[in-house]
Amino acid sequence: MSAVLALTAAAGCSADEEKDSGAPIIVPGEVGESSKTVAPESLKTPKDDYNDVDREFVEMMVPHHQQAVEMSALAAKHARASEVKGFASRISDTQRAEIDALQGWLETRGLPKASTTPTGEHVTHMQGMLTPAQMDELAAARGRAFDRLYVKRMIAHHEGAIAMADEALSSGIDTVNRAFAGDVMASQSAEVTRLRDILLTL
């Protein structure tokens, strides 16, 4: 995903490395806007050029993504429909990469790595998360019953991520983080549409 490339570039490279690379970076536009290509140096963000909304969004998206990875690992074992298995595989690959990039964003700014499980006040602020009981129910399901449950709960999970990204896009100030939030809104909105189409076939 383009936002992951931008997030990784800003989190893992120094300013000199970015200038030396010279490779353009594609940054997704906000909702309704097209993407644009920018020079790496234009994405430099001072370590203190972020606010609490940016930080909290990143800290919450790590465990949020981790749960999606765990849900998709169950799909690899228990799903019956090839469409569900294929979707789950893509979610796992994409969101693992995004977790690494998000942790890099925190590390670059001298912040502790985010927990992969919800902690503290984030528990009540994170939207779309499955409860432990709901995860247990998903783990116990098999075949078509699993497929339908996975899809329904992934839709809710994605909708929660979209709401969180909307807040980050509206109130965050970090350039790279806002680009990532915009990409989450666009990509996961498209995936919700795909999931609803899959659900009609199950």
Rank of each mutant, 00 (worst) to 15 (best):
L102E: 11
D100M: 10
A156T: 01
F87S: 04
G29Q: 12
L7E: 05
G143V: 06
A186R: 15
A23I: 12
V84W: 03
S42T: 15
L130C: 06
T131G: 07
R109H: 05
K19G: 03
Q103F: 11
D16E: 13
A161P: 09
V176D: 08
A68Q: 04
A141R: 11
I162V: 13
K47A: 08
S170E: 13
L102S: 12
D54Y: 01
R178P: 03
S82G: 04
H78Q: 13
L200P: 00
A79M: 06
T175W: 09
I26V: 14
L74V: 10
V192A: 01
E121Q: 12
D166C: 07
S72G: 02
A168N: 05
K77W: 09
E17T: 09
E17N: 04
V123F: 09
D16L: 11
T193E: 13
T193P: 00
K44R: 15
V176Y: 05
R96K: 09
K47Q: 03
S21D: 15
Q188M: 10
G32N: 10
D20T: 11
P63D: 10
E191L: 14
A141K: 13
A145P: 00
T117I: 14
M71K: 11
V27G: 08
N177I: 15
A73W: 07
P46Q: 11
V84S: 07
W105T: 00
P63W: 07
S170A: 15
A181G: 10
A88E: 06
Y150F: 15
V53M: 09
M126Y: 01
E98Q: 11
A145R: 06
Y50C: 02
P46Y: 13
D136T: 13
E121C: 01
R144E: 14
Q127F: 02
A75I: 09
A10D: 13
L138G: 04
V184L: 14
A97V: 00
A186I: 08
H125Q: 14
Q66F: 01
S170W: 00
T94C: 10
A190R: 13
R55V: 14
H78T: 08
D147E: 01
N51A: 06
A68Y: 02
S171A: 12
E83F: 06
P118T: 03
L202E: 02
R109C: 05
